[in-house]
Design a binder for these strands. Sequence first.
DNA 1: TTGCGAAATGACAACGTTGTCATTTTGTTA
DNA 2: TAACAAAATGACAACGTTGTCATTTCGCAA
Lengths: 336, 336
Amino acid sequence: MATMDKKNVSMNDVAIAAGVSLKTVSRVINEPDSVRESTRDRVHAAMEALGFRANFAARSLKLGRYGCIGVVLFHLSGGNVDMIDGIADAAAERGFALTMIKKRAGEKMTLAEASRRMSQLPVDGMIFNLRQMVDDFDTFEAPKDLKTVIITSMEHPTCSTVSDDQEGGARMACEYFLNRGHKNVYFVSGKKESLSSQCRMKGWRAALETRGIEPPAPLQGDWNADSGYVAGLVLADKPDCTAVLAANDCMANGVMMALRDKGLSVPDDVSVIGFDDELYKTIPNSILTSVKFRHRELGVRALNEVVAGLEAPSSRSRTLVSGVLVERSSVKDLRA
Amino acid sequence: MATMDKKNVSMNDVAIAAGVSLKTVSRVINEPDSVRESTRDRVHAAMEALGFRANFAARSLKLGRYGCIGVVLFHLSGGNVDMIDGIADAAAERGFALTMIKKRAGEKMTLAEASRRMSQLPVDGMIFNLRQMVDDFDTFEAPKDLKTVIITSMEHPTCSTVSDDQEGGARMACEYFLNRGHKNVYFVSGKKESLSSQCRMKGWRAALETRGIEPPAPLQGDWNADSGYVAGLVLADKPDCTAVLAANDCMANGVMMALRDKGLSVPDDVSVIGFDDELYKTIPNSILTSVKFRHRELGVRALNEVVAGLEAPSSRSRTLVSGVLVERSSVKDLRA
DNA sequence: TTGCGAAATGACAACGTTGTCATTTTGTTA
DNA sequence: TAACAAAATGACAACGTTGTCATTTCGCAA
């Protein structure tokens, strides 16, 4: 009964119980060394006895910061989980908690709307996990006092971004071919309007041109295996085609099926590399070598970037996280 | 230059700019109908011009609540993702944000430690996502003013829990067998000390006894396919064995392999059901019927339970989320 | 003992909101 | 036009911390 009088125990209650001033209790929490041991013990005992827990709101109000980073999830699935895991670990390491909101199914969320909702919450900075285009991407301006990092494959005019290095990944794959004696690399693209596809194509083109090779006309795909199959049928008839880079694994699989149907062997007749390293999930004993992006690292970098920018929210940086080539046996070394 | 004078725009600044009192600005935000339209417009204009955003800390301090639910992740993987998705959606629907902390790799986290960390954060209640035993499970007491829900398969003495209905799932599987003419059901358990396994065994036993069937001695497994294989070899020699319930899919697969090696067919000679419905991920064309638990629903229920308990944190409830039988073709209907 | 500098502690304001209650303004009726 | 109730607005305190600065206490040398 008597213990029900007050809802929450405040520092003042502790101070009274311990026979010290409010400020001394505050000091016990924030700068324990400046308090005499005997006093400190008395305060600790009082805190224990009363079940004191510091009030987050009051503390944040006074300090002007929260110790939380906001995370906006536009989608929660697949690789995103690894990314969140990376964010969460990096946050824990730096003493930050995460505040999360999620786009609801069916809801159309813009960056402005997400930002508005986030800035009502206890956050010092925020991370947008954006795997899809949104309407206001280019026009969006982040709150001036809230460091904002966007995880996306596009470059943003004012916000810091963290991206997979799609271009570099494509370059890496091409060099992998060329270093193994291939004289040229054909490319099967994803949907024309896709930024990922464009980046990957750009990297492919650059890699060839660097070596003084004239890139052949890219084959237009649409991300699906069927379009890869069509491309594969065309490529099977090209005598100089020994290496194919497909903008994703599904199309790479389509290419491989077509080559097989045309009586060609992968990798003996034609070598193939895909992107995303996801074929092994659906195809047992998959041989496809693939460029995989490190989603977890993406999360870690994004969080670090936010924390680094807390003091200067308007700073802007662009971080590229390199991909990794997952080697299987779909590429033949022609030098052997 | 002139705009850099103040760091944050407060209601007071808005009030001055709009030529009204502080309180009127507050009213425009919280009870717009009580403010004359002309005044409201003036205030809105001032807010817009100054870029005002309400201060979360001050607001929470005054209101005594945060509008955030804490989520403690002990592990982030597999089914947990669906669960978090459920929590996040349910939270969004009820106007709550989530504050997340995560056990770091290698760190040994107890409920008490997790609770201590959470209660320093802006949360009105919390959810522990506990898929593993922790040392202080039974002795843990949640803060009296913070509604706490634990997602776990065990019952907790003082906290509300949300669990998969493992026992019910096992019962359901048994009844599925019995309703199809099977006279008995053999059981292959998981590790002896596992609570999941114990619950599943309990449900199996109860289902048989309800029908007046004497449960045969359960076969001891260890969750892995190998132990299922050993059990399968034993079961193959029992003429009365037409139905096997294995405590997980891996062991069920082991059982099926053993039966096949002994010249028996699934389901023609022996029917099998597993748990978790995960075999299809690794085995193409899997025929195994399996009891699957609805992780997403678990998250939704947990969040709803927290929100429902905000006013009475010490209330305690136990929610069971039923499993679903995913039918494939590993069970033969003997009545046919 | 006294005096003194350093260490420990305390009084009070401030952070930016919202609740309470008082005051002013508005619109309506006599 | 006066009187009045209702609507709109305002003054001020309070939420529970931390920073600033003043005060007290301590330990040690004279």
